[in-house]
Design a protein around this nucleic acid. Sequence first.
DNA 1: CCGGGCGGTTCATTATTTGAACCAAAGGTT
DNA 2: AACCTTTGGTTCAAATAATGAACCGCCCGG
Lengths: 259, 259
Amino acid sequence: MGTTSKALSLLELFSRATPEIGLSEIARRAGINKATAHRLLGELAAHGFVEQVGPARSYRLGPAFLRLAALREASVPMRDAVRGVLRSLSDVTGETAHMSVLHGSVLDTIAYSYASAHGTQVRMEDAEKLLLHATSSGLAVLAWSAPDFVERVLAGPLVKRTPDTLTDPGEIRARLAPIRARGFAVSVGGFEADVHSHAVPIFDSASAPMGALAVAAPSARMCPDLAALIQGELLEKGARLTRLLGGFAPASFPAPQAA
Amino acid sequence: MGTTSKALSLLELFSRATPEIGLSEIARRAGINKATAHRLLGELAAHGFVEQVGPARSYRLGPAFLRLAALREASVPMRDAVRGVLRSLSDVTGETAHMSVLHGSVLDTIAYSYASAHGTQVRMEDAEKLLLHATSSGLAVLAWSAPDFVERVLAGPLVKRTPDTLTDPGEIRARLAPIRARGFAVSVGGFEADVHSHAVPIFDSASAPMGALAVAAPSARMCPDLAALIQGELLEKGARLTRLLGGFAPASFPAPQAA
DNA sequence: CCGGGCGGTTCATTATTTGAACCAAAGGTT
DNA sequence: AACCTTTGGTTCAAATAATGAACCGCCCGG
């Protein structure tokens, strides 16, 4: 791994749960020397990627991301399209909708939308990184991924997040064909207990799955009617989002109008 | 300069005008070897900071900024506050409002808002980086900056962007005291010809100027009434924004209610 | 069919990164 | 108040990683 990668990986340490971290803690979590961490953070800070704050001189993500995210949006409008789709999904289904994009072998949640209807909602604040084998979003992505990528994921350690998490490679592999046939994936309590979620893949311009659109509901509220509603909405909105982002569903993807 | 800084500075090459750049072009503009650029871009790409696109394999800013900008917003809510203030500023004044933050010795424009009123508007798309000596925003920041920082800026090369750009260190120095007394800075055609702009500084939690809030109007439309309106609005909205961002105006800052 | 541009790769040379040991300062505990 | 631990930050010789000229194969226009 290059020096630059080490520096960039320091940025991965920040999360909603830990938005500010001290020097020693960063070095410890990243598994690098304190002096090295200090120098790398200095370089990141010079470019506005991190900044120091407070009397403890803790580090947090810097202001450069405002500018760069705006620039990214200018060249690849995505946020607005995603937001609109999520809003309408959560409105219609009355449940939490979220979108995540593939990053290495995990899914990063980039946006979510809560419904105003119910008191209980599946919350997404603490689910920034989704595991491919443990979520409906992950299964949706795997189902349309290249076989060697799937095998690499299934070969790696499959963390058992909950008692219901699928960790048997064979079982997961067997689930992918039905997902491909129906166009969406389902997970019941695989990531968080008592959460029933549906997901459809979103494709890029090369027809490769680049992420997933999902609706998560409390298991207690799931029923055939709600499931049918969510599935129909996801297939329709997923197809629309893929188009909005300039992507194409592969020819093998089931036609959305097939009810 | 460290290796990491070189990699990060590649990100500065992207702009609204050039959102996608090829490998050779990147190496040329950054003044580094093609092989080096290739390796650095590879590391950036592995973390989602850039991505390759199209048959030409050009590079553009990557999707990681969506996630990181969202995280930055979660720890330092800024964008929403800025947006709201800008919107109301451009509505009330009928002119273009913009916000920029200090980054080294330039100002990065992070957001702007156009008014719906006039056909002619000062456009901000091509003004991502503002020079401190040539803009009202820059003068507003300089007026409340530490003397050694001011001297360092005035010592450096002062680019003459237009015939009206101030480039005499002595003259600029002399302008800062009146700015401090009134609370806002003015620039007439110093950055773009025929643009008349006003700006107030925005302060951070240490009462240091972290950026500026500005209103830019075509010179032809400027008159005493409009100037008075803009000045009053800027002082009020600037004070509010400083507070919204968790900052504090220094004791020396003129009270906004002093009409 | 020939340049000349492109993206990407190789490998010996070189300069940069690295980390143990070291500060001074700031709590916590006895 | 003496002590221990941990904090952010610094130093410098040793070791590792970055570097760039030359090199592909490719595609496009002449």
